[in-house]
């Protein structure tokens, strides 16, 4: 019989390495994919997802079982990714703003103008690629909310638990994200 995530986590807290390995095997794909969706860099995603597992090993005893293990784990991954983005963001803003003194809008909130190239709108694949690229330029919380809903297919209450905010805030994030995406894509 397969042990639940919660049982494996409890055993990890008791320093059961086999239980930890089982959790890693179960979540490695999701952790890496989620991290990559947020940071968009394979190496960073690998490091961040591994760091998330290390945090699980170190603090498994603090998992109180009130939420699902997956929610708790996603929260660790998302927090690590958002922290990493925040660190990089300061540097990127500085670099970008040097050449763009007119702009006062934060980098991640700036949205590109709708493409003028009609060729881009011809192929659907290309359009969808642009759409995900636009997701990559969303504000971090909005982006995380979109990824958790679309990619991980989490319901709103679970997204709220992962992002540690209210369900209403998640809806606001999603609404803003979709409004921005619609504008970016020129209402495709």
């Amino acid at each position: 019989m397969e042990l639940s995530d919660e049982v494996l986590c409890r055993r990890t807290a008791e320093r059961d390495e086999a239980a930890f390995d089982a959790l890693v095997a179960r979540y490695q794909g999701r952790a890496y994919r989620l991290a990559w969706s947020i940071v968009r860099n394979a190496e960073d995603a690998r490091d961040l997802s591994q760091e998330a597992f290390i945090r699980v090993f170190q603090s498994a005893g603090r998992f109180d079982g009130r939420s699902k293990f997956s929610t708790w784990f996603y929260r660790i991954v998302v927090n690590l990714c958002l922290d990493q983005r925040r660190k990089h963001r300061g540097w990127k803003l500085w670099v970008r703003d040097e050449g763009d003194p007119e702009s006062h809008e934060p980098l991640l909130d700036r949205q590109p103008a709708p493409s003028q190239d009609p060729v881009d709108t011809i192929g659907r694949e290309r359009t969808l690629k642009r759409l995900w690229e636009a997701v990559g330029r969303l504000a971090p919380q909005q982006r995380a909310a979109v990824i958790l809903q679309v990619q991980e297919e989490l319901p709103t209450p679970e997204i709220a638990a992962v992002l540690k905010c209210s369900e209403a805030t998640v809806r606001v994030h999603l609404h803003r994200a979709l409004t921005t995406l619609r504008k970016t894509m020129g209402t495709t």
Partner: peptide, 11 residues
């Protein structure tokens, strides 16, 4: 959302 779901990129 449908478009996004159909075009989820793989790392």
């Amino acid at each position: 959302l449908d478009d996004l779901a159909h075009a989820v990129e793989r790392p």
